[in-house]
Simulated scan of single mutants.
Amino acid sequence: MGIFSKDIKTMDDLFVHTLQDMYYAEKQIHKSLPKMIDKATDPQLKQGLVTHRGETEGHIKRLEQVFIQHGAEAKGVDCPAIDGILEEADEVLGEVADKQVVDAAIIACAQAVEHYEITRYGTLAAWAKQLGRNDCATLLQQNLDEEFAADKKLTKLAEAGINRQAA
């Protein structure tokens, strides 16, 4: 279903479609994180990715709760955007031989994922409020807050030395 599909007729339809998009995206992210964890050499980066994988499990559970609260089926729809971001990350990480550069690349790739999630969760939380679903907005805001925190931690790691060591 494309974004301008005839299946999306209302704001509610758009909200549910975007929820399904994020449900798929979070599951793909959860599946891809072990590869990044394995390739990371910096102990703090490795631990941060492990922690975020656990948070991702929580994001999936919160999305399932939003589906239940909203009365929609918890299912994913293909998300070409996250597929592309993760495919690019896989390609970049496969091309880098220097372990310090790999850590910098992991941070860059992880931040691309975080920024995508931030845009989607921000939109979903705003739409939930507009639809009168503050219960859903609260859960989506929790995911958004965790994504912002993850991005901030990645920036801190990069600026604290990983990027300098890679250079």
Rank of each mutant, 00 (worst) to 15 (best):
D13P: 09
K6R: 13
M22Q: 14
I37G: 03
Q165A: 15
H115P: 14
E73Q: 15
P43I: 04
A126Y: 00
Y23A: 11
I82R: 04
A160N: 15
D21W: 06
D12I: 02
A104P: 09
R133H: 07
I85G: 01
N163W: 00
T10W: 11
F67Y: 07
G84I: 05
L63Q: 00
A104V: 08
L139E: 05
A112T: 09
T119N: 14
W127N: 02
G58R: 14
T18W: 01
T123I: 03
G71F: 02
R133C: 02
L14T: 12
K61Q: 15
K156G: 05
K39P: 03
V77P: 01
E64D: 13
V92E: 04
G54W: 08
A97C: 03
L144F: 02
T56Q: 03
Q165F: 10
S32Q: 03
Y24I: 06
R62Q: 08
Q44D: 14
G94Y: 09
A150R: 09
T51Q: 12
E88L: 08
K153G: 05
D90T: 13
Q28Y: 07
D135N: 07
Y23E: 08
Y23K: 07
E114V: 09
Q69T: 05
A128M: 10
V102C: 08
A112D: 04
D103G: 05
A150K: 13
A160E: 14
L19A: 04
K35Q: 15
E146K: 05
A108T: 14
H59L: 02
M36K: 05
V113C: 05
Y116G: 14
C79P: 01
G71T: 01
L140S: 07
H52N: 08
G71P: 03
K46Y: 02
I37K: 09
K129D: 09
L157S: 00
R53M: 10
K152F: 06
Q111A: 08
A89W: 08
A74E: 10
A97E: 11
N143S: 12
V96Y: 14
E114H: 07
L63Y: 02
H115Q: 13
T10S: 13
V50T: 12
D38E: 10
E73A: 15
M11V: 11
M1N: 12
P34H: 11
A110R: 07
F148E: 12
D103E: 10
L139T: 02
L45S: 07
T155W: 08
Q111I: 08
L14H: 00
I37F: 04
A160M: 04
K75I: 00
I68C: 02
A110E: 10
K129E: 13
I60R: 01
E57Y: 00
W127P: 00
A97R: 11
V101S: 15
V96R: 10
A112K: 14
L63H: 00
L93S: 07
I60F: 01
D151E: 05
N134Q: 09
D42N: 15
V92D: 06
S32L: 03
K27D: 08
L19E: 00
V77E: 12
A108Q: 09
F148M: 13
I107W: 03
Q111K: 13
A167N: 12
E57G: 12
Q111T: 11
D7M: 08
